[in-house]
Design a protein around this nucleic acid. Structure first.
Lengths: 103, 103
DNA sequence: ACACTATTTGGCTAAACTACCAAGTAATTG
DNA sequence: CAATTACTTGGTAGTTTAGCCAAATAGTGT
């Protein structure tokens, strides 16, 4: 059964399916960032941010690199950024439909 | 705060983040299908399939159309199919890394 | 060795998600 | 209108996830 493949794929997508994680992916488009920068960005406990990053790392979305006291994360497969365009298209379609429904 | 936007986006992605739902999206690439066909595909209780479809419908990924006893679902914003290419790329990268680690 | 900083890990609780069954709705047919 | 089919909704139990705190780890500088 190729069910296992869909499970792996779902796991990758699940690793993106959280507001803070999306925000971090978006930020990492600019280049690598340390956990401390990402923490400021998403404004959550450092441990929470670290766990989000672990989830994305395990899924293969990001990699990390240690330098001194800092750990820098970066996107591993940049194509994930293209997800945003499509998600925006869905959002736009939703908004248009809502606007139409109100009339 | 544009946190709300990331929440909406995460919601759309979350609606894809399940093996059965991915499988259905993949199948809908061919064109619209009734719930009964999708049920056979994912091999789950009809009520479970119906709930998965509701989640995707609420997120704006699919729309439905009733015809007689059947309800046909179809993709609303076809660009979601491009997600698969990128997810495949992540999977490939993961596999390569695993292969390298074994040596 | 000690203090300090950046990050991860463990543990816990509350919330969200999933899947099944049973019951309900809606269209179709005899 | 009773029976049947396709689907949805409600309820509920089991599982997973998220976020916080506290404690552990790892590097840096004194």
């Amino acid at each position: 059964m190729n069910n296992a493949i869909y499970k792996s794929k779902a796991n990758i997508i699940k690793a993106m399916a959280h507001p803070s994680r999306l925000m971090m992916i978006d930020a990492l488009a600019e280049g690598e960032k340390c956990v401390c920068e990402l923490q400021v960005l998403v404004d959550a406990d450092m441990s929470t941010v670290s766990k989000h990053l672990t989830i994305m790392k395990n899924a293969g979305l990001v990699t990390d690199r240690k330098e001194g006291l800092w750990v820098f994360y970066r996107l591993r497969v940049p194509c994930v950024l293209r997800f945003f365009d499509c998600v925006d298209a869905v959002l736009r379609a939703n908004d248009e439909e809502n606007a139409r429904a109100l009339k």
